[in-house]
Design a protein around this nucleic acid. Structure first.
Length: 388
DNA sequence: CATTCCCGCCATATA
DNA sequence: TATATGGCGGGAATG
């Protein structure tokens, strides 16, 4: 098969303990973005991506699917995607919102009512849009024709879009994956397979949330009341169409050039693979590209090949610095310490132990700065913590 | 124990 | 048919 062999032998470096964090989809997404958000990137090959990022192909599909559902990528052909970049996001979200509104994505309610029986109540009502595509051979015969559709309805990409619609439409700004799963269950049409296992859905939502988090679309926090983990939308939430605002837009963080070649050797998580003998040195090849330098933010200079997208005229919207996940925003909430920046530095060390050098430091400094400006711009008016 | 979510088998879609 | 995609859920890592 394709699989470019992942070097089973692996010379040198007797693996590290295995850290789940280093294998997360969120990090992978961050790396993916860092790798391709550069000038000159037109198309992306899946095999290439898998190799460059040092992950198995299967994982590439995961992130590519969600990135595509948000407009950053577009499928071209087998094995090939075109890089749309962050500029594609505003439009994609706009479309999602309209589409969601057209359907009734705003008419659900999360009755977390603790009343009656053990029957969890989360009443929703995602209207079934009048599907135009499905021809009317319908009912009687087998659905062999729409077998393909059925599969697509369960795709990660679609789930991602629906998840986002939840935020874009309606005024819910905080939702737990569990509730989201319940709401997004049957989704669109047909009273068929009910009683679906939402647990399975939740697993998918975790995947999605992780990549969306890496792009700062959402943020994971703990519900002030419930103390349960929930997600909050950080992206656009313009109130009305006309005059498209979009909050996020802007901010000039610019393309950082990241040392490509992540050299992510494969560690498996097998339990029976721990301490073999001596851990050898760190990372056989710490050859990471030293010339990693992010240009000082200035104006961007991207490809001028933008399409006729005149939707949002004005400045180039650069998106926030998809900061690494977590970084609990923790407003004044709990233990409010002044160790803000410090955390970031810790993160740097936590995230890529192998790269303890200057480059990473700079990268994170950049992130911090970009993130700050971005956030003050976006949420500036109403500071981060709105809850109290 | 509960939550998070990586891994990769293997069903499907597609060339 | 071979290869490309990508559901799906077991169970390991974490909380």
């Amino acid at each position: 098969m394709a699989m470019p062999s992942s070097e089973p032998k692996e010379s040198g470096s007797r693996h590290f303990p295995y850290c789940r964090k280093e294998k997360s989809l969120g990090l992978l997404c961050t790396n993916f973005l860092s790798l391709y958000d550069k000038d000159g990137v037109e198309t992306i090959g899946l095999d290439e991506a898998a190799t460059r990022l040092g992950v198995e192909r299967r994982r590439i599909y995961d992130i590519v699917n969600v990135l595509e559902s948000v407009g950053v990528l577009a499928r071209m052909a087998k094995n090939r995607y075109s890089w749309k970049g962050f500029r594609g996001i505003p439009q994609a979200l706009q479309d999602l919102k309209e589409e969601g509104l057209r359907e009734n994505y705003s008419t659900f309610e999360v009755n977390a009512k603790v009343s009656d029986d053990e029957d969890e109540k989360v009443s929703i009502s995602i209207a079934s849009s009048q599907d135009d595509k499905i021809n009317r051979s319908s009912v009687s015969s087998f659905s062999k024709a729409s077998k393909t559709n059925n599969r697509k309805e369960k795709s990660l990409g679609l789930l991602t879009q629906n998840f986002i619609k939840l935020f874009l439409c309606s005024n819910v700004e905080l939702i737990s994956l569990d509730d989201a799963a319940k709401i997004l269950l049957g989704d669109a049409h047909d009273p068929s397979i009910r009683r679906n296992n939402s647990a399975a859905k939740v697993r998918r939502l975790y995947d999605i949330s992780n990549v969306l988090s890496s792009m700062n679309f959402v943020e994971k926090i703990h519900h002030p009341e419930t103390r349960k983990p929930a997600f909050r939308w950080l992206g656009i939430r313009e109130k009305s169409e006309n005059g498209s605002e979009n909050a996020f837009v802007l901010n000039e963080s610019k393309k950082r050039v990241f040392g490509t070649e992540i050299t992510n050797t494969s560690f498996k998580r097998s339990k029976a693979l721990l301490p073999k003998d001596g851990y050898s040195n760190q990372m056989s090849k710490t050859q990471l590209q030293a010339h990693v330098k992010c240009e000082p933010m200035g104006n961007e200079v991207h490809k001028s090949n933008l399409q006729q997208d005149s939707r949002q005229s004005s400045e180039g919207y650069q998106f926030g610095p998809f900061a690494p996940v977590s970084v609990s925003r923790a407003g004044a909430a709990e233990k409010n310490n002044a160790k803000q920046v410090h955390d970031w530095e810790n993160l740097a060390a936590t995230y890529r132990p192998e790269y303890h050098n200057q480059a990473l430091r700079d990268l994170f400094d950049h992130y911090v700065e970009a993130w700050k400006s971005w956030h003050s711009e976006v949420a500036g008016k109403n500071p981060i913590q709105l809850m109290s």
